[in-house]
Design a protein around this nucleic acid. Structure first.
Lengths: 252, 252
DNA sequence: TCTTCAATTATCGTATACAATAGCATCAAT
DNA sequence: ATTGATGCTATTGTATACGATAATTGAAGA
């Protein structure tokens, strides 16, 4: 590429945003995001071993960056990091699952209370549009439906304008995906569309108490619809874990 | 070292916990904890630059481990990580500060609601004892008083038995320390002892609504007592930040 | 044939090496 | 004297190297 005016320095400093020029730290972020998505979409299944070498090789980076990503994912509870035994996709216990859902209910209640009466017209419209999408994708296309339902909650959190609240909601949402992958029914509808509709209505009306209440019960419903169903202990892990623990052994 | 019974395999697997034998990953953890404490105790002041080399040298580890610690601390919002410019102790804006306090109020309300009516006698007694300590350290020894007040909230979170809730409360507490270091009054009493006493009483009585309400107002009081006092923009940073931002510059 | 021990291999934990970038100082030109 | 360019230095981003630990496999003995 030739520059018509190579003498002037300033225009160059503006970091050309060409697709080729990846700024540093970007690749680490990419690894993190790739793994995160893979876990949430269950391409990497709960409990699966995550060797640093093979993953780095696959993604075209060194172990260093993979390790960095593991660190972040471990903080978020998506991978487990055992000393000298490496990383594996987290396999939350039922107790941890309950903890996550409890916290999630609390956080999303905050979201509802914050948003009640403070939605702009544009925001309300966007939420309605989102629910419409959910309705369209309802019966067919299971994964898409699940993704949309999750996104609804994320959008709500974003609308609060509270960055920390958003981060926490994202984190518990991710972990809920994992949890439902393990303990959820195959076709639990996740979020009933009508419940989302009612919630929007309450937010619009500025009825904080009702909005919070709806959100709380909505998430509670998700739990009872999906969770609480160890579905026949489909995994030997679940069966053996208590025995292993009582013997002081670590589950493989 | 000689083993009297080297044939039996089981006793060996118990990993001897000799003080000399540091298990791997331990050193990384140590670096993390050291930096965390240093930041919270304001040995490392907000905005201070954190060069990887010097810190690693000081702590006797390589940049690798320092970097790992930075990653975790960045997730928790205690350090800021800018590409190619390294790490520095976080310097939360007033807006971020408000976000943190809002989330904290929500989280601790959860704690209060969870604990109300569920305190064992032993737990109640421990809390009373803690408050007694706070009272003793009230006037004198500022730092100690602040530490105790913070610990009270951590102990409450621990008593819920919800590991995730505990982690979040710890995180927001850390960040609140940073925030108060920047925006707090020199001698804000932080937590009024009487408010802690009232809270314990409500928890004991099982009055969830009153407990939540007390907690909420207690933390709100902390904010108004301490925060909201940019104390005369004592730092040029605060003054220049908006201008720098509007010009796309990053504050040094 | 089954158990037990030992050697091998795979993988991790940490340090170091090397390349890239940003900040700074020096110096020339107007 | 001030402004802008240019090379130097410090520090970061990433990869690789090496020692240490755990998994595995194979062999030997019962």
């Amino acid at each position: 590429m030739t520059w018509s005016e190579p003498r002037r320095a300033k225009p160059e400093t503006k970091r050309a945003k060409m697709s080729e020029t990846r700024q540093p730290g970007q690749r680490a972020q990419s690894v993190y995001k790739a793994l995160r998505r893979a876990i949430i979409e269950q391409a990497l299944k709960p409990g699966m071993k995550l060797p640093e070498d093979s993953i780095g090789e696959q993604l075209g980076v060194s172990r260093t960056l993979v390790r960095e990503a593991f660190g972040r994912l471990a903080v978020e509870g998506l991978v487990e990091l055992k000393p000298n035994r490496g990383a594996s996709v987290a396999y939350p216990t039922l107790e941890e699952a309950r903890d996550v859902f409890d916290v999630r209910r609390g956080l999303e209640r905050m979201v509802a209370e914050t948003l009640a009466g403070n939605l702009t017209a544009a925001q309300a419209a966007e939420l309605e549009a989102h629910v419409a999408l959910e309705e369209k994708a309802h019966g067919r296309d299971g994964p898409e439906s699940i993704r949309l339902a999750g996104e609804f909650h994320i959008r709500l959190a974003q609308m609060t304008g509270n960055a920390l609240l958003l981060r926490y909601v994202q984190e518990v949402s991710s972990r809920c995906s994992l949890i439902l992958a393990i303990y959820g029914r195959p076709h639990s509808s996740e979020c009933a569309v009508s419940e989302h509709r009612q919630l929007i209505e309450a937010l619009r009306a500025g009825d904080a108490a009702r909005a919070a209440h709806l959100m709380d019960h909505h998430l509670q419903a998700v739990v009872t619809r999906a969770l609480l169903t160890p579905r026949g202990e489909r995994d030997i892990r679940e069966v053996l874990a208590p025995y292993a623990l009582s013997e002081g052994l670590t589950q493989p």
